[in-house]
Every structure is written in structure tokens, then in C-alpha cells.
Design a protein around this nucleic acid. Structure first.
Lengths: 195, 195, 195, 195
DNA sequence: TATGAATGAGGATTCATTCAT
DNA sequence: GATGAATGAATCCTCATTCAT
């Protein structure tokens, strides 16, 4: 009852991360047991623990993986010299492009209910913080109306994530990008300073 | 010595429904096992199956219970002769009042990920349909801007539910009602026709 | 995949306790897995947890069960008006009688290495405390020599338990009771006051 | 990049033996998995099997290692021209010195329950046999009382090992050597011929 | 009606061992 | 010689559901 080196070094590792993301996204967190994750990745359960200390760590790393990439894009948007309105629009477009490129990963990172394995919101809050920077920029230049930045963040992410959720569950047709302009407009209307 | 008539007719039934809602909301779906639900309701496991065919049915009926009540309020708002802006505001106030009255139930019905026992849809869509009536009313009187009603519904529920979510998870302070005016304003800005 | 009420109320419970004791005694703690214990008791693994919260609790209760009975005997010996020498002899006889009546239980309670499930020494120490009472009695009447009571306890239990151990492992022939007089003599020689 | 000659010839081998002894003694047999043993020795799991055929062999050899050393000392005691009483005392002193020098090894070799990887016997009996020689010597010179040599061995090792056990578990304070005189006295009283 | 013991499948995790590199 | 990924069985424990009492 031994072995079988199957592939390249972190090939297995990546397959496990992907399998986790796909299963959670497709069938919900309950369905993403170690057994199923391993099966989907083409390894045995025991092998999972060669690469990850625990199920929680596996989930957490899957989350971090996705999220780090997304944040980099957002950071460059916030740092750019564009107007607040253009930044909001760029943020929405980047978000929906992400969704369309890999709806599973997006769902996993931003929409799934992660209370069970307690991944919490390392990203959620990092993204929230970053968005608040954008809000304050816009407020200081008079482009955005006066509003509690946390609420502004809630409005903005509510508008975006709800569209993503409805696309994911099939109520809205994919791709999400087709709604980017409309969502950007709604965000601008909701947050922009009135003339 | 088995048997022991415990209380009034569907008293037990109601306790089970409430216990389900509370457990799911407080500790997540994983924690809401039959054993724990029964314990919280002060009943034995076997008794659950006297009142509900299965765990799925129990969850489904808990969901319906909450949702029916919420919908009745909304129906009377839509049917009223008020302006579209006032109807939006009334809807937001009613929603947040519901949340504050019983955050557990609200979370259970609208925010929890119910894919495991496959509930969702029913209400979400019933409420969605109802809201679209409101949108079409406003659009036909020229009060609301031209926009796909499904997207309008997404915007509106995204703005409301995201605040509720942040209150539930502790990022925003309770009660949710304190944010009703701001959310109503944002919704009006996002959906109202421009002058 | 349901049920099968098998027997009387705590019939199963007792079978599980006995199975635990027997397996530990016969094959060592490693061999006494929940699976094997359940199999030996004629139930499924899950059923164990209807009666015991955990493996540790099962082990602990098995331990307590055996030990409580033994202690009662010892208490009456210590309380009796006999001479110290006679009390020592009675203690040895009672101990070996216990061993012979149920070597498995005796081994389980007093000889097995319980560090794994951390049952520790509730009894060990209670028995030790009790024996120290006996020692002090004998010292105060001048029957026993002056010696640290903890060491005296060590000597006494070392003499008794080692014989039990050797009988259990087959180096000495059963029954242990045949060695009671010799062990009592050795204990008296080791602990009695010199003339 | 595999391979990497790590150190001197049986350096690794010794480190593995020591790691086994330490882990078993410190944290019990359950904690001494191949993974942990290898880690503690600074080697990988696979390497263990380059030096030992199996875990059982590793344990067995660790046992033998300790025991051989101890026996040599005892042999010279038995062969010496001293009185029986002095030999008993020397034996006790040597035993406790061993314990104090390396309680882990002592525990591993003499107190741990080794039924799992089935070691025991070898030394226990070799030491037992040797002690019986001492007993018979003493009986033939009339220094020791008439008693079944196996029982005498039981008494003697019971007195010594129980003290070691209590020191190891913390009931008696270390070092064990401080109790050597008392234990030697008790052994002499229990086994010596009466005047 | 209500009880709770029993089931069997499944949950996450650890283990000793092998073998391609 | 050494590495560490992979295996498959075993670990303890929880779950939804049933049914004799």
C-alpha cells in the first residue's frame, strides 16, 4: 500500500486548490469535503495533507491565491490619476472581468459563505479598506458626495456583488461584463456629488 | 416509559422552526444538526420526524414562514398610492425593521447560503417579482429611469442586503434602521429619473 | 439505514465498558480502538457515542467503575481495629482476590499505561492517600518504622503490583492469591518497626 | 534535487534511536510516529527505512541499546566479592544512577508498555535471570532468607521500579538517587535472613 | 405522540510504508 | 544514501434517519 509519484512538484498542490474552488463554487461548501476534493484532484485523501496542514488551510490558501491577484489590479486603479467617476467604472469593469474569466474563483473568494471553515475576511477587509481610500479621494476633490465611507463601500460592493451573484445563480445571463456600464452608472449616481 | 405529551398542538412545531432559524443564523448551517435543533427546541430527535418529513422540509418551511410574513408587508407598500420614491423608502424601512426585529430570521431567509438543503429561489424570486412591479409602475409614470427591471431589482436588493450583511457580521453597528434613510437615498439616486 | 434496538437500557453500556476493559487488558491500549470495542460489544461505532461522549470518557468511566469498588474494601480495612500487620496482610489479600476475580479489570485499572487517553490517577491517588492513612496509624502506634509515607506507599504498591504484573504477563503462575502471604510478609518486613 | 549525504556513517542511525527513546518517554508511544521521530532526528521519513527495516525494528533496537549497557554494570556487581546486602545496595544505586542520567531511556526500556511493537521480554528476563543469580548466591551463604527466587526478583524490582515510576510521573521528586538508601534498606529488610 | 438507542455512511485527520527521482 | 509525495487503511467522531418501546 505504497506510493505513486504522479506529477510535477506543485502540480498536485494546484490541482487541489482548483478542485476546492470549483467544488465550493459549483456545489456549495458542504459538498467540498476532503474526500471529494481529493477525488476531483485525482489523489487520495491522505495526499492532501502532504500539501496542506488542514482543510482550513487549504481553503484559506485558495482564498488568498485568488484575492491577491484581484487586489493588485485594484491598487493600480486607485493609484491612477483618473477622475473618481472613471475609477469607479474601471473598478467595476475589472471586477466583472475577473468574474467572467473565472466565475468559480470569484464566487469562491467573494460570494461563498465561508463561516464554516472560518476563512474570514482578510481580503474582504483589505478590499474594503482600499475602496475607502478611493471614496475619500473623491470626497476631497468634491467629486463624490459626503457619506460615511463604510456605507459607501457597502453600496458599491452591494451593487457589484449582487449582479455577480445573480449571474452565478443564473437569474442574469452571463457574461457579467455586459452589465458593467449600467452598474458603473448606478454607482456613480448613488455616490457622485450632485451638480 | 415512553410518551409524554409535551405541550399544545403545534407548539412543538413552532419551537422547532424557531430553533432551526436561530441555529442557522447564529452558528451557520453546519451547526444546525437535527440533534442540536431538537435540543434547542426542548424535544428529542425522533419527535422532529413526527412534525416534519425530513430536515430539508423543516428548513424549507422555516424559510417560508419568515418569507410569507415579509411579503405581505411589501405587497401593501406596492399597492399604496404613494410616489415611487416614497415606495422605495417605505420598502427599505420595512426591510430594515424586519432585520432589527429578528436578525436571525432575516439572515436565515435572505442571507444564508441555502444550497445545501436547496431552498432559496421561492422567496427571493417572489420578492423579486414584486419589486419589479414597483419598478414598472415608477417607469410608467416617468419617476424611475429606464433600466432593465431585473438589474434594477439587483441594485435595490444589493444596496439593502449588503448593509444587512455588514450589520450581521458586525462591520456596521446595529440597528440597521439607522441606515434606512441613507440607503433609500442611494436607491433613489441610482434608480430615479434625472430631472 | 436506520435502527435496531437491541437490548435492555444499559445493557449496551455495560457491554461497552466490559469490552473496553477486556481489550485493553488483553491486547494493550493501542488495540482498543472504538471500532474494535464496538465490534466486541456487538454494536456499531456510532452507537458508542449514544452512551459515552468520547473515547476518553468511556475509558475514564471504565476506570472509575472498577476502582470505586476496590476502594470501598480498602476503606473498611483501614477503619478496622486490627493491628497494622494484619491490615497490611488484609490489604494484600483483598488486592490479589480482586486480581484473581477479574484480572482484566485489575490490569486495566492499575497496571495499564493510561497516558494515551489521559485517565490519570483519580484512583491511584485516592488509593495512595488511603494507604498513607494506614501507614501513619501504624507509625503512631509504633508498629511501623519511621519512613516517608509516600515512599512507604511506593514500597507497598510496588511489591503488590509487580507480582500482579508478572502473573498477568505469565511469568508467575496464577492465581495471584497464592503469593498473598509471601507478599504480606515482605511488606511487613520492609515496613514494620524492628524489634 | 534528491540526495544529500548528511553526516557520518551511523550518526543518523544513532540520532534515530535517540529520537525514538526521547519521544516515547516524553510523550508516550502514540506520539512517537515515524514522521515525528524522523523530524526530531533531522531526517526525512524515507531515510528511516534506509537504516531500519520497520518501526518495530527501530523500537526493538532502541531497547536493546539501552539494556545492554545496563546489564554490563549489573554483571560486574554480581561478580564482585561483596556481601549480599552490599550487592543489593550497589544494584539499587546503579539502577537509580541510570535513571537519573537518562530518565527518558530508563522509562523507555523498563517502564513503558511495549506490547504494541512487542519488545519487552528480552531484557526484562535477562535482568531477571541475573538477579536470581544474586539471590541464590545470598541464599547459599545464608545471608538471604529462603524464598522463591522469582518472587524475590519481583519484590526487588517492584521496590525499585515503582520509585522510578513515581519520580517519572512527578509524584516523587527527582533525582531518584536520593531514595537509593531507603530502597536498599527496604530490599534488605524484605529479603535478608533474619538474625 | 414521544422517546432515544441503533444504524451506516461520511466527516477530517494520522499512520507506516513504498518508490520515482 | 536521501528525499518527500503518494497510498490505503485506520483513527475518533457526527450525521440524518428509523423504529421498538
Amino acid at each position: 500500500m505504497p506510493t505513486r509519484p504522479r506529477a510535477s512538484p506543485d502540480h498536485t498542490r494546484n490541482r487541489l486548490l482548483r478542485a476546492t474552488i470549483n467544488l465550493v463554487s459549483r456545489s456549495g461548501p458542504r459538498a467540498a469535503s476532503i474526500r471529494r476534493i481529493a477525488r476531483e484532484a485525482g489523489v487520495t485523501e491522505g495526499a492532501v495533507y502532504r500539501h496542506f496542514k488542514s482543510k482550513d488551510e487549504l481553503w484559506r490558501l485558495a482564498h488568498t491565491l485568488i484575492v491577491d491577484e484581484m487586489l493588485t489590479q485594484k491598487e493600480s486603479i486607485v493609484a491612477s490619476p483618473a477622475s473618481a467617476r472613471d475609477k469607479l467604472a474601471a473598478w467595476v469593469r475589472a471586477t466583472f472581468a475577473n468574474f467572467d474569466k473565472n466565475p468559480e474563483a470569484f464566487y469562491y473568494a467573494l460570494l461563498a459563505d465561508h463561516r464554516a471553515p472560518a476563512i474570514l475576511g482578510p481580503f474582504y477587509h483589505r478590499q474594503g479598506d482600499l475602496f475607502q481610500v478611493l471614496i475619500r479621494q473623491g470626497q476631497s476633490t468634491g467629486e463624490l458626495r459626503t457619506i460615511d465611507p463604510t456605507l459607501a463601500m457597502s453600496h458599491f460592493s452591494g451593487l457589484m456583488l449582487n449582479v455577480a451573484r445573480l449571474v452565478h445563480e443564473g437569474t442574469l445571463r452571463a457574461p457579467a461584463s455586459q452589465y458593467a456600464d449600467e452598474v458603473a452608472l448606478a454607482a456613480w449616481l448613488a455616490l457622485g456629488a450632485r451638480p
